[in-house]
Simulated scan of single mutants.
Amino acid sequence: MSSATHSSSTSSSSSSSSSSSLDYESIPVTALNYGVRKKLALYLNPTNTVAADWTDIAEKMEFTYLEIKNYEKRENPTQKLLEDWQTRVEATVSRLLGFLEQADRKDIISDLKPLIDDDCRKYLERQKELPVQVPEVDSRHQDRSITINDGQTPETFDAFICYCHSDFQFVHEMIRQLEQTDYNLKLCVFDRDVLPGTCVWTITSELIERRCKRMVVVISDDYLDSDACDFQTKFALSLCPGARTKRLIPVVYKAMKRQFPSILRFLTVCDYTRPCTQSWFWVRLAKALSQP
């Protein structure tokens, strides 16, 4: 551990102790949602001020000179910085607060503290719904049936479909276009394929991590308000960082009023909203799901 990392942990301890009972060290930075990230960018992106900016934070996160120079080409370097850093094991809220404190940006901490605490509490509430015994999803326990066609061997799928219930009509169309055609793909649709009475978080983890080759995320305004969709997406992104771009495919099927989630912006989107691209939309998606 470098001195910078060590000192960030030390300095963030004072931030944690001055807060309520939140243990920032145990909360990953992925718990911070769009509102906090947008405000961080508003503070850190400008480089013509006397205050420390995103480049100072990047150095404390131990990004290389070349990496930082590449981030300079980005319209929103703070956003990209957080997206890359959050794949590391040490990327906790505590470390981020520590870096800000070291950079003498206590103004940011003071302004964003209520939003950060709110996101952290929501994250902890979701964690309470997760199973206490993680081995429940271990491969040694795959003899338990969780989908309607599980037999002696666990059922596997080409893709897990992450969607909110208000978008289920489009999921039906996805089933028709991808399963009931020559593509003959096998999709895991929670409401159709998963046995009732099972723990949602446990089964989601099992399906995304072990039984499905890909994950299709149906993005909509309602998706952004769904805790279940938020958990499923972040779980998929937390898997092997080198493989995540191959595993997760965002789909937009109707116009959105809200901004596209920043955590997915580094992925190529399959867009159904433009009439000029609809003719090859299903071909493109099916090809991506058919890859080994």
Rank of each mutant, 00 (worst) to 15 (best):
Y43Q: 03
K113I: 01
R176M: 11
F170T: 04
L237F: 01
C276H: 14
V29A: 13
L237H: 01
R37W: 03
P250D: 04
I108Y: 03
N33V: 05
N33T: 08
N76Q: 12
T5Y: 11
L115W: 11
S110W: 01
D143I: 10
T147N: 04
D271C: 07
P154D: 07
D167I: 09
I263L: 09
T78H: 05
S262P: 00
S220G: 09
H165S: 15
F99N: 08
N45A: 08
I68K: 10
I57E: 03
P135S: 11
I263C: 03
R274L: 15
P46D: 08
V200M: 12
Q102S: 11
K38R: 12
I175V: 15
T198R: 15
Q169C: 03
I146K: 07
T277Q: 15
I263S: 05
R126D: 09
M215A: 15
Q152M: 10
L289V: 03
F190G: 05
I109E: 05
K213Q: 14
F160P: 02
I219E: 05
D143F: 15
D53Y: 06
S290P: 04
R176K: 12
K257T: 12
T156M: 13
P46V: 05
D193T: 10
E59P: 00
K113E: 13
L178S: 04
K287R: 15
L207Y: 08
Y183M: 04
P261W: 08
Y272W: 14
L130M: 14
E67A: 11
I219C: 08
R126G: 15
